[in-house]
Amino acid sequence: MATKHSRAAARLMISPAVLLLLGWMIVPLAMTLYFSFLRYNLLMPGMEEWTGFLNYQYFLTDPAFIASLINTLLLVGGVLIITIIGGILLALLLDQPFFGQGIVRILVIAPFFVMPTVSALVWKNMFLNPVNGLFAHVAHFFGLPAYDFLAQAPLASIIGIVAWQWLPFATLILLTALQSLDQEQLEAAEMDGASPVSRFFHIMLPHLARAITVVVLIQTIFLLSIFAEILVTTNGGPGVASTNLTYLIYVQSLLQFDVGGGSAGGVVAIILANIVAIFLMRMIGKNLEA
């Protein structure tokens, strides 16, 4: 049983972590909130003045905001659909007995370890480039004209690149969950004459539901903040065709030096991320009790 003495020691051991995280969270957050109510441009130092909700009004009514919000949703949604469906199929496949399971598993998870700037640049140049890219070569081989992916379909191309990076994550987690499934239950269902399809929908999918939720929530947190992939492939363009919320705020604050406007955008991004976070925290919290 923990004594009074050990409780005090425990508190002392936890406090550095708590204080640091608290500072890391509160200080910048308070500053962002404060800046968001100022007219504050780094190019005009000393001209800061209180403007109330003007920054929010500008940010939220900017056509680029609506466009980037839609792009953010498409990016997150598109990657989620591809990685969840692909991940389930891959997990089912990798769960089957076949020769070289370990090696194939290693091949499948590899993209997750590739740093974002590398995967984005490699896809941009070696595959999607309309002149020298591999896809262009393949198109020429079949007598088709090359397609300029990043100019014609920038957002879809980025969705593809990001999905390639995150498919291993979904696969790995769904595979782990699948392997904890009670085999006897499956065999019993099989003996009772359940078809593979009904076994999948009535036994496997319900068992995977929790893991799928976890994958959706965690990926959403990361996908809302996709940045490097956009920076090195399209710079958010053409126009704002592949600009997401993160990139828009980056442009506004660090390229246009509009601290006030960028901060207002940051507050909006925080609110959006929190909506997702609340669901995720509830799930993890429930699991902590189990």
């Binding site: 800046f35 940045f227 980056y250 960028g262 940051g266």
Partner: peptide, 8 residues
């Protein structure tokens, strides 16, 4: 989201 605290 990191972009929320990028400026500060």
């Amino acid at each position: 989201p990191p972009v929320g605290v990028l400026v500060p």
